[in-house]
Design a protein around this nucleic acid. Structure first.
Lengths: 164, 164
DNA sequence: CCCAATTGCTTGAGACTTCAACATCCTGAG
DNA sequence: CTCAGGATGTTGAAGTCTCAAGCAATTGGG
């Protein structure tokens, strides 16, 4: 509860945060939509798969890494599956589990669009910053992540059902 | 287009950004939804109106300040109007213009929910940071804003139709 | 004065996200 | 072995955002 309001400096930071948090996704979505017809959330999923062993991951693992709820990921993957970029397989070890697998078409899309995406990220976020500012930004963000998600579990749903 | 990839430090910063950009809105939306049944985007609109002279602003002005496209703001205000928190008036000087006006009910909602919202913002973003980190974060974000939106006009639609 | 271009805003459709309910499979206590 | 409870995913509906199209008012060049 502490003090009631933000101080002057915090207010400026907060407004800048709101603006950047609104603008950056817009810029990236626009680039990805134009170049590959996919959303940023979908791109992150494809990118995570492209880095994974066997180009595949369990849905829950993928959801955690892509910062998406399981439900959202399920829909996202369903759309990617419709477009033939991803395929789903039931897990062998655990019959509940589902594996998302990047198809060859999906791989091609990632390869084709990644460089432009990286350029867009750099242009939007890193180019304006000095080395020192970039480092400081990273440090601050990592501290915040640590607070918001202490055990790096990002359990989005079913999470902490204490009060009820 | 310069180097192809992000360096090690930039990658970490970028991943932290993605996580924070996903988690912070989730936390704030949850708090506002619970306490007032409104989204964060809607809260920002109400807050902007509550600070405005006459508790009212032109739609386009409001859209700019709330970092929303005109279309999105139009939908947002329509929903707020349905709930009786905002009222719309045609502008006197410019017959095209529309004025969004905060109603008494809307004012009450802002008053009631603002303290808890500020607490949530502080808890999520500022509490984990030292004074110095907070200042550095603000500086970095402001530099990025300056790049993304040089003339502070945030013209979201009709924007820069050079390439076509 | 006149109308074509521009500005301000709204609308509807489609894409995406959230939320709650559900189905399925696994695990472990008895 | 059995079944209750937990874990993993999916689904459908409702809410929200984006995009393109459209309407109404204003402006400026002829």
């Amino acid at each position: 509860m502490a003090q009631q309001w933000l101080d002057e400096q915090q207010q400026r930071t907060w407004r800048a945060w709101l603006t950047v948090a609104e603008l950056v996704p817009r810029v990236l979505d626009a680039q990805l939509q134009r170049d590959a017809g996919i959303s940023h959330a979908a791109y992150v999923v494809l990118a995570m798969l492209s880095e994974a062993p066997g180009r595949s991951r369990r849905m829950s693992d993928l959801a955690r890494r892509a910062n998406q709820s399981q439900s959202r990921l399920s829909h996202t993957v369903a759309r990617l599956e419709d477009r033939g970029l991803v395929r789903r397989e039931r897990s062998a070890e655990d019959g509940r589990g589902n594996l998302a697998v990047l198809t060859d078409d999906g791989w091609d899309v990632v390869r084709a669009v990644a460089p432009g995406h990286v350029d867009a990220v750099r242009a939007a976020l890193f180019d304006p910053l000095t080395e020192e500012q970039s480092r400081a930004l990273g440090e601050a963000l990592e501290v915040v992540v640590e607070r918001l998600d202490p055990d790096h579990s990002l359990r989005v749903e079913h999470g902490a059902d204490a009060a009820r």
